[in-house]
C-alpha cells in the first residue's frame, strides 16, 4: 500500500478500522469517546448526527490531521499514526465543509490541479484529471474563471472537484450538499455514485436525510462522540429507530415516515416508497377483480 501507486488506480482500496478511538481537543473538549467502526473496502457510508456530535473530528482522523488521544486508526490493518498527512492524502481525499477555507488560485483549473500535482501527477495525466473532475461537477466551462467570481454553491462544487481530481481510493465529503440547490445536489449525488461505482470507499457527513437515504448503503448515527446506530438506511430510518433518532434531533426522511404511516414497511427513499405504494395499488386492484 503506497500512496503514489494507490492514487489514480482503485486497484487497492484499503479497509478502515477505528479501534476504540477517543479524542479530546487541547482545550479539553472530549469529541470522541471509544469509537469502534469498521468500514470495508468500497463501502458507501453516511455519517449523521446533531451539531457537535464529533462527525468532522472523526473523519479528520482518517488522513492524520488529528491523532487519537487513545485507540488506533488502521488502514488495511496498518496504524496510520506514523504516516505523514501529505502521504495519507494520496489515500484519503477529504473535502472540507467550507470552500472559502481552501480556494486560493486565480483560475479554476489551477485550483483543481493543486491536489493531484501535490501527489506527483504531471503533464497529460494532470490535464485529463482536471478536465474530468470539472466535467463531473459541471464546471467544465469555467476552467479559466477566477474561483471567487463563482457563487457560493459553485465554489463548493469546485472544492469538491479539487478533491475528486486526486482520485484517492477513499473519498470523504464533509457536508457536500449544504448550500446546494437541486441541481447542485444532483451533481454531488453523481460524484458519489461514480466513485462508488468505481469501487472507491465513499464517506459523507450530512444533515440531509433524503440525500443520505438515496445515496448510501450504510448509515452511522453519532451522538456526543459515540456511534449510537449503524446499519442499512432501511433499519436506521425504520420506525423502530425513530425514538433514538429524534433523541438526537434527527428527523427520518419524509419517505420513511410516509411509508410507515401507510403501513408500507421500511421505505427510506422516495423510489422505494413509490414502488411499495404502487405495489399495494396493484395488489388491491388484483383483489377487486
Amino acid at each position: 500500500m503506497t500512496a503514489g501507486s494507490a492514487a489514480g488506480s482503485t486497484a487497492s482500496v484499503p479497509s478502515i478500522e477505528f479501534e476504540a478511538v477517543s479524542f479530546a481537543y487541547p482545550d479539553g473538549t472530549r469529541a470522541l469517546s471509544d469509537v469502534a467502526l469498521r468500514i470495508g473496502s468500497g463501502e458507501s457510508i453516511a455519517i449523521v448526527g446533531q451539531n457537535g456530535s464529533g462527525k468532522s473530528t472523526l473523519v479528520r482522523h482518517l488522513n492524520g490531521l488529528l491523532r487519537p488521544t487513545s485507540g488506533r486508526v488502521l488502514l488495511d490493518g496498518r496504524d496510520v499514526r506514523p504516516m505523514h498527512v501529505a502521504r495519507l492524502a494520496g489515500l484519503v481525499g477529504l473535502a472540507f465543509q467550507n470552500p472559502d477555507r481552501q480556494l486560493f488560485a486565480g483560475r479554476v483549473s489551477t485550483e483543481v490541479a493543486f491536489g493531484p500535482r501535490n501527489l506527483g501527477v504531471r503533464g497529460q495525466e494532470l490535464e485529463e484529471r482536471v478536465r474530468a473532475a470539472l466535467e463531473e461537477v459541471g464546471l467544465a466551462a469555467e476552467a479559466a474563471t477566477n474561483p471567487y467570481d463563482l457563487g457560493y454553491s459553485r465554489r463548493k462544487l469546485l472544492a469538491l472537484a479539487s478533491v475528486v481530481a486526486m482520485r484517492t481510493p477513499i473519498l470523504v465529503l464533509d457536508e457536500p450538499t449544504t448550500g446546494q440547490d437541486a441541481r447542485g445536489v444532483a451533481r454531488v449525488r453523481a460524484v458519489v455514485a461514480a466513485a462508488t461505482e468505481e469501487g472507491r470507499t465513499v464517506i459523507a457527513i450530512s444533515h440531509d436525510m433524503a440525500f443520505v437515504a438515496e445515496c448510501f448503503r450504510r448509515v452511522v448515527v453519532m451522538r456526543v462522540g459515540r456511534v449510537i446506530l449503524d446499519g442499512r438506511p432501511e433499519a436506521v430510518f425504520g420506525e423502530a429507530a425513530w425514538p433514538e433518532l429524534r433523541a438526537t434531533y434527527l428527523e427520518p426522511p419524509l419517505a420513511a415516515v410516509a411509508g410507515a404511516r401507510l403501513g408500507l414497511g421500511a421505505t427510506p427513499t422516495a423510489s422505494s416508497f413509490v414502488a411499495a405504494l404502487s405495489g399495494r395499488a396493484w395488489a388491491r386492484r388484483g383483489s377487486h377483480t
Binding site: R60, V85, A86, F96, F114
Partner: peptide
C-alpha cells in the same frame, strides 16, 4: 488542514 488534506507538504 484543508491544504494538507490536498497533499500540501507542511
Amino acid at each position: 488542514e484543508a491544504q494538507r488534506s490536498r497533499g500540501m507538504d507542511t
